[in-house]
Amino acid sequence: MPLPIAVFWERSDVPGAEHALLEPRDGLYAQGTLLAAAPVPFTCHYEVRTGPDWATARLDVRAEGAGWARGVRLELAAGRWRVTGSEQGDLDAELTRNGHARAGLPGCDDPDLLYGAFDVGLSGSALFATLPIRRLGLLGSEVGVSHRLSVAWVLVPSLEVVQVDQIWTPLAHDQVRVADETSSVDLTCDDEGFVTDRPGLARRVTVAS
C-alpha cells in the first residue's frame, strides 16, 4: 500500500538529500533514501518500524556506491537487539582513494552493548530525530528537563552500529536540543515532531501529503 506522507530534506553539510515516505499512525513506518557526495558518493535506502509507543522494533539499511554495497538489519527481540550485517565489494578501497580512513565492518561485534537502547539513529538522516521526540513526548513537555538516552547509532556509509549516549532537552514549543560527548545542536520541528531544520545537516524543503 502506498505510504501517505512524503518528506524531503536538502543536506547543508555535503551535496545530498533525504526523501522519506511514511505512515505515522500507530507509531511510525517509513521508507527513505539518503543521497550524499561525501565521504564517497553513495545511496542509502532504509526501512524503519516502531511500535505504538514509538520505540524502534526494526531497521533495515542498505548502502551502495562504486564497487561496493553493504547492508545491516537491527531487530528488537525480548528486549535485546539482533544485528545482522552484510558486505559486497570494497568500501575501504573507495574511501582510501578519496583520502578517508578505512571503515568499520557493517553491524556490531557485541549487540549486548546496545541493551537499553529504545531508539535507533542513522547518521546523515533528519528523520530519525523524530523517534525519541515522539517516544518521550518532548514537544510541549516541560522546558529544560533533560532526558539521557542510549541510542543504537548506524554510521553511514559503513553501516557499523555503535552505542551512543545522548541528552535530549525540550527548549520551546518547536525546538529540542540534542547533545552527545562531542556536539550539541538545536532542532526545529513541526507540530508532529518531524525536523524542519537541523543546523549543520539538513533543512526540510518540501512536504506533501
Results as ranks from 00 to 15, higher is better:
Ala126Lys: 09
Ala172Pro: 12
His147Lys: 13
Ala126Ile: 01
Ile167His: 11
Arg148Met: 06
Val143Ala: 09
Val154Lys: 04
Thr169Pro: 08
Ser150Asn: 13
Ala126Gln: 13
Ala129Thr: 02
Ile167Val: 15
Asp165Phe: 05
Gly137Leu: 00
Trp153Ile: 02
Arg134Ser: 02
Asp174Pro: 09
Leu139Val: 08
Val151Asp: 03
Leu149Val: 09
Val176Met: 10
Ser141Trp: 00
Asp174Lys: 11
Arg148Gln: 13
Leu136Glu: 09
Val162Ser: 09
Gln163Glu: 08
Leu136Met: 06
Val161Met: 03
Ala179Arg: 13
Ala152Arg: 07
His147Phe: 11
Asp165Trp: 01
Ala126Leu: 01
Arg177Tyr: 01
Val176His: 12
Arg134Phe: 00
Leu159Ile: 10
Phe128Gln: 12
Val156Asp: 00
Ile167Trp: 05
Leu136Pro: 03
Val154Cys: 07
Ser146Arg: 14
Ile167Asp: 06
Pro132Leu: 05
Trp168Phe: 09
Pro132Ser: 08
Gly144Asn: 10
Leu171Ile: 15
Trp153Glu: 15
Gln166Met: 14
Val164Phe: 00
Ser141Gln: 07
Ala179Met: 15
Leu138Thr: 06
Ala126Asn: 08
Leu131Asn: 02
Val156Tyr: 00
Leu159Arg: 01
Thr130Trp: 01
Leu138Lys: 05
Val162Met: 07
Val145Gly: 03
Val143Phe: 05
Leu149Trp: 04
Gln175His: 14
Leu136His: 12
Ala172His: 07
Trp153Phe: 12
Trp168Gln: 12
Val176Cys: 13
Val145Phe: 04
Arg177Asn: 11
Asp174Trp: 04
Leu155His: 08
Leu159Lys: 06
Val143Glu: 07
Leu159Met: 06
Gly140His: 07
Val143Gly: 05
Glu142Ser: 15
Asp180Ile: 09
Leu127Val: 08
Asp165Ser: 14
Val164Asn: 02
Ile167Ala: 08
Trp168Ala: 13
His173Arg: 14
Pro170Asn: 14
Val162Tyr: 00
Leu131Glu: 01
Leu136Ile: 06
Ala179Ser: 15
Glu142Lys: 12
Trp153Ala: 13
Val151Pro: 01
Ala126Asp: 04
Arg134Glu: 00
Ala172Arg: 11
Trp168Ser: 12
Ser146Gln: 14
Arg148Phe: 01
Ala126Glu: 04
Ile133Glu: 03
Val154Phe: 04
Asp180Ser: 07
Gln175Met: 14
His173Met: 12
Asp180Glu: 11
Pro132Cys: 04
Pro170Lys: 09
Ser158Met: 11
Leu171Arg: 05
Val156Ala: 02
Gly140Arg: 08
Val178Asn: 14
Ile133Trp: 00
Leu139Glu: 02
Ala172Ser: 15
Gln175Val: 06
Gln166Asn: 05
Ile133Asn: 02
Leu139Pro: 03
Ile167Gln: 14
Leu155Arg: 14
Arg177Val: 12
Leu159Pro: 01
Thr130Ser: 14
Gly144Ile: 09
Val151Ser: 04
Gly140Asp: 04
Asp174Ile: 09
Ala179Cys: 12
Trp153Ser: 09
